[in-house]
């Protein structure tokens, strides 16, 4: 596989260039936002500069940036959904990271849109909603 270089900037400021960006799936449909990012240290140096390894999105991902009350609410929300944590999208499925973050997978394959799918099932049953 040929490594891509022109699908994202070489040097970024993570908060400015990645956080809160819109996620688009392979069909161009909205698939959540970049609420947080997972950092992983190098295997051979636990204190070394970490790599960005995943996008965290959906319930439970944004809350730590909003304070203790938001974290408390998110923790209960995740418990109700019986989920251990926020949705994790491996950075390896990102095909382009510019104004928007383009993914190489369908949003139906992502946990980050679970709430939206759940809400759609409810709304679809309301007369006149279709």
């Amino acid at each position: 596989m040929t490594a891509l270089f022109d699908n994202a900037r070489h040097t970024i400021d993570v908060g400015l260039d990645l956080l809160d960006r819109q996620l688009l799936d392979k069909d161009g449909l909205m698939a959540g936002k970049v609420d947080d990012l997972e950092l992983t240290p190098p295997e051979d140096d636990p204190n070394g500069p970490p790599f960005i390894t995943a996008i965290l999105s959906g319930p439970g991902a944004l809350a730590p940036r909003l304070g203790r009350l938001a974290s408390w609410i998110a923790a209960r929300r995740l418990r109700l959904d019986r989920r251990p944590g926020p949705s994790r999208i491996a950075f390896g499925v990102v095909s382009r990271a510019q104004t928007e973050i383009q993914l190489g997978v369908s949003r139906d394959e992502l946990d980050s849109t679970t709430s939206e799918r759940w809400a759609r099932r409810i709304i679809e049953r309301i007369p006149g909603a279709a």
């Binding site: 950092l39 970490p50 960005i52």
Partner: peptide, 25 residues
């Protein structure tokens, strides 16, 4: 206030070389 990252990490799937955190702003 931010984290500066360079794209010189290991290749990650279709994205290509990944981002490594270089410094804190």
């Amino acid at each position: 206030h931010d984290l500066r990252a360079l794209r010189d990490g290991p290749v990650q799937g279709v994205f290509g070389p990944g981002y490594r955190v270089q410094a804190l702003v």
